[in-house]
Nucleic acid binder design. Sequence first.
RNA 1: GCCCUCGUAGCUCAGGGGAGAGAGCAACCGCCUCCUAAGCGGUAGGUCGCAGGUUCGAAUCCUGCCGAGGGCACCA
Length: 568
Amino acid sequence: MIADDLVAALDAALHTIGLEVPSSGLEVVPTKNREHGDWQTNVAMVLAKSAGAAPREVAGRIVAALEAAAPAHVARTEIAGPGFINFHLASTWLYDVLGAVIGDGAAYGHGDAYADLAVNLEFVSANPTGPLHAGGGRWVAVGDAIANLLAAQGARVHREYYLNDAGHQLDIFAASLMARYRGEQPPEDGYQGAYLIDMADAMRADLGDDVSAEQAADWGYHAVVAELRDDLARIGVHFDTWFSERTLHERGDVTDVLTALREGGHTYERDGAEWLASEALGDQRDRVLVRSNGTTTYLTNDLAYHRDKLARGWTHLIDIWGADHHGQVKSLQVAMRALGVGTEAAPEPEIILGQLVKLERGGVVVRLSKRAGTVITLSDILDEVDPDVARLTFLLQGIDTALTFDLDVVTAQSMENPVYYVQYAHARVCSIARRAADGGVVRPQFADIDPSVLVHERELDLLRALAEYPETLRHAAALRAPHRVTTWVRDFASRVHGFYRDCRVITDDPALTHARLWLVESARIGLAGSLAILGVSAPEAMERLDVDEDGGEADGDGGEAGFEPAGE
RNA sequence: GCCCUCGUAGCUCAGGGGAGAGAGCAACCGCCUCCUAAGCGGUAGGUCGCAGGUUCGAAUCCUGCCGAGGGCACCA
């Protein structure tokens, strides 16, 4: 990588003139403005104070030393602005990028930052008492993409879904199902959703007219889990493990946790309940472990669960939670530390918090009411838009910001969704390759082409973006921020479209055609690779939509928001 | 009251110490005898919530305030 070469050269130059490398390290970054060259460093400004000289003067010394041993590709070095050192490179550095992309293929941009990590990533984990809520789609998309990101950095990643199938909620669910089965209203505090009526009918069809409460509880549970699995499959997410909370109770893991905490002297009795002295460990307050009725709380069970994940050999635990659970983060981490976790070998669980999704319909907030049974499910969304649209919609922005999902906007404008912009770039690029093949244009071996014919700004722009891709993936993985990949690929797609417009690939100039065919292949690799991280498909062909062919795509679902004929 | 996240263009959001702050949508103006126009180019649009502080340099870090969302159960 050119950046590494420049860092090495700077390091050597500093050594030559007797300056220390800044403690923050050497920073060489791409310039934002082309006029400032290709890469820039701020070392001179960082070192000015300790060197006891003006930044530009320090820069001058560094540049002099650099020129004595000029690194490859550097055409010109200049001092600019308050003391930046700008590197103007020959475009040969970009031909190296092209070579790297072609050489690595689908693995281009991947790294080994997490090669030693065995990650257990738990996400979604919605209670098995009904279908997946539409807002939960955010965790589906984000979790899967984070898993892909970590895997692309060499981690072994395990996707896990925790089924809270031992608590009170499930009893209430079973009672609600049983009530519907008998044609009655669910209990006051029960699940009012209409889906239970359908489910009760299905149960009757399955088990007949004489179903016991126990049978109903069991049947209902399995039906819900099957439905969760189906919904997730529809959007293309597969979990390696569906972990049942019951297991923890049956095996005695929960009592083991209690024993360990007691032995550590972290528990006490009050008001007939058993408490964890978590405030002393850094929590906001103490927490109940065992209720006065003898049952264990969510926290206790969750501790047993996290211990089990470690016992199964996962060295790094990650949970993705909605912000509505933020109050539990500290409790879990602090208690895990009390259990001896939090060491180098067993770091405490990493909790990724995401802000909640606000559902709207036509600008009006859809309030979810259990009583009224107003529920919009993920599968409702998938009935209206394809999984790629749903996924990318959830991956457009950072997880720290609340996301508004307007069902009308997302469905009515699904054709304008950025996902098609990116996929179209991929389809176009594939189309070129197809055309070339159909026309009998044979792409020579990469080693046999002359990349130096690639001099158009559009061509170089593609390679510049590809040069930054590995760094983008690394950052996205480190920050657990898949939306950075979305941002990158949208920008890259824009460059691909620009190139497509301005640079004809298949021409009567064989050298240029051959080089561009490989360039196009590198673009395909970049698009397909980043889309794969996001869990979005990369179609090789898409139909052209012409404005005057108004309509199209009538989804026939009685949609009141049909597509307007768009043009005058 | 305490804790977490967010306030950037009309709207939805990128950028999270570096040089005139970016994109998409919406508005306006252009571009298909040529590899798919789901495309490309251009114009217009900003006190980066407010006030202090740190720094050579702050939209970015710190503090306070204002505003929005989410938490503060012997629910999960």
